[in-house]
């Protein structure tokens, strides 16, 4: 998306680093912070009695660009926001060296529940207009408070359940897997009561690798085509749905309509303008599942053992 600004803004990157995290004044181990994935997962949150997480934040912009530009009264505002709780707080950071700001962002337990976005904007007076946003943090951070969250990357949840004993799945108790969704999360549920499923998927032996990958690809095709249809159902007008639905659509639409821009593709899918849509969805899901590689590998492995069996 090319934006045209009515005043000069920074072209260089503004990077934010979370240097430390404290939970009610107790320093958390640095391993809760992943610089690479820009996430903080303060894991020991199983306890319910904490009040506030304080994050030590540092922001850097290119000093030479700031010196050379027409910006006056620079200040940096760090924000912590979460759509689910409509929480949005902004705190002014302190400038240390030119082009470098540090400060603390607070996350209050009562105001947050899931994924909190920590970001910020650089504000200046430009051409006499105060309060202009001249840059935003290039890669915002996410503080993930969801219980049980361990991975730093955002993904579809996976659970094991014995379908025969779980009332939620009584309607599909003989299936090997199913998919459940809410506004917040999409979950792949694997049937632990399905003979051999777990054994194959979690097999550590290299010999099972091809089978394991072919099975995983099959699960993935089911998962992605289901999620796609669920997501499309929730599209309203021209707007992209929020959360996992939007992410699923953004990943799959380019494979469904390769010569449509994402917006056009969304419009097309909602209006059902093109026929044979389910076949294309299947294609996009197979691509997400990396089907050609997994299944191809499986078939090759069958051929390999062939001659020895004869």
């Amino acid at each position: 998306m090319k934006r045209i600004m009515p005043y000069p803004v920074l072209t260089g990157e503004v990077t934010m680093t979370i240097r430390e995290a404290r939970l009610d004044d107790v320093q958390l181990p640095y391993s809760v912070i992943s610089e690479q994935d820009r996430t903080v997962v303060p894991r020991p949150l199983e306890r319910d009695d904490w009040e506030v997480i304080r994050l030590g934040v540092q922001v850097r912009a290119q000093r030479y660009e700031l010196d050379a530009g027409p910006w006056l009264s620079l200040s940096f505002l760090a924000t912590a926001s979460e759509r689910r709780t409509n929480a949005h707080s902004a705190v002014k950071l302190m400038m240390g060296q030119p082009g470098e700001w540090t400060g603390e962002v607070e996350i209050h337990r009562d105001d947050h529940v899931g994924r909190v976005q920590v970001s910020g904007q650089l504000v200046a007076t430009v051409d006499g207009v105060p309060g202009r946003v001249i840059a935003t943090v290039n890669r915002p951070w996410t503080v993930d408070l969801r219980p049980g969250t361990t991975a730093h990357r955002e993904s579809i949840d996976t659970q094991w359940a014995n379908f025969a004993e779980d009332s939620r799945f009584s309607w599909c108790k003989t299936d090997p897997w199913t998919v459940t969704t809410t506004d917040e999360t999409a979950t792949l549920v694997l049937n632990s009561g399905f003979d051999g499923l777990r054994a194959v998927l979690e097999s550590p032996t290299a010999a099972d690798r091809a089978t394991r990958e072919a099975l995983a690809a099959q699960i993935a095709v089911d998962l992605w085509s289901t999620l796609f249809n669920e997501a499309v159902y929730h599209v309203e007008g021209h707007d992209w749905p929020e959360g996992w639905r939007g992410q699923v659509l953004r990943r799959m639409l380019p494979d469904i309509f390769p010569d449509y821009s994402p917006d056009d593709a969304l419009h097309e899918i909602v209006n059902g303008g093109t026929g044979a849509i389910q076949a294309r969805v299947l294609h996009a899901a197979a691509k997400q599942a990396r089907m050609p590689r997994s299944l191809g590998g499986f078939i090759r492995s069958l051929r390999k053992v062939g001659p020895e069996d004869e």
């Binding site: 600004m5 009515p6 505002l77 904007q121 504000v123 105060p130 309060g131 202009r132 946003v133």
Partner: peptide
């Protein structure tokens, strides 16, 4: 989009 009300 251009103004930071939080800053102002």
């Amino acid at each position: 989009g251009t103004l930071s009300y939080e800053a102002l």
